[in-house]
Amino acid sequence: MVMWRALVQRELQLLGRQKADWLNPLVFFLLVLSLFPLGIGPEPGMLKQIAPGLVWIAALLSVLLSAERLFKDDYRYGVIEQLVARRQGLFSYVTAKICCHWLSTGVPLVLVSPLIAVLLGLDWQSWQVLLVTLLLGTPVLSLLSVLGAALTMAADKGGILQALIILPLYIPLLIFASGAMEAAATALPYTGQLAVLVAFLLFALALVPLAVRQALRMNVG
């Protein structure tokens, strides 16, 4: 626990020093969201209808963007290599990375959700559902993106490759998160979708950190 706290502290220190790492994805998210009305047209009815998919695709892109460089520095400066040789701290390091990644990219998305609601003309009820799906879905998004970053850590080319790997895995989340919002918009029950999101979250929480640790080992081995 002492170790884990020290590792989280280190991640936060790094985020404090490299503010672009978490500010850029947030700006990117808002930028993408504001491009859509410009491209499709500003009719509130239309925006309201496409809002669920829109928010979740923009969220995916921005989280993916933020994860790309997640392990690159630590890999380049030999930190990962020595952690893998050391074995013990590696799992704590992975979980600390995941937590801090969510804190720095998922939580800001949750916090700007009222702004999204205003931009896309969502009502009070829809905003609440958006908030809940973001709270449940962004951790899964972080887990998957961290996995993608870990798999491609030592690869010669990152960006697009990481997207190719992660996008298929992300489809269920997209379906159920936007499904919940659509159901709520048409006054249908949406607790089922939320329950599925909770299941995804628990499932990913149980398996992804192990896979990430394995991926890091392979990338230096």
Binding site: Q18, G78, V79, Q82, A85, R86, G89, Y93
Partner: peptide
């Protein structure tokens, strides 16, 4: 691994962190 201290070709020092922070990180890991 418990009995091993490995310092590779790359130093394991993150340039964005201070000497103290880097030291604290490796102390926590070991």
């Amino acid at each position: 691994a418990e009995h091993l201290l490995f310092i590779g070709h790359h130093s394991g020092i993150h340039p964005q962190l201070t000497a103290l922070q880097n030291l604290a990180f490796w102390a926590a890991i070991s």
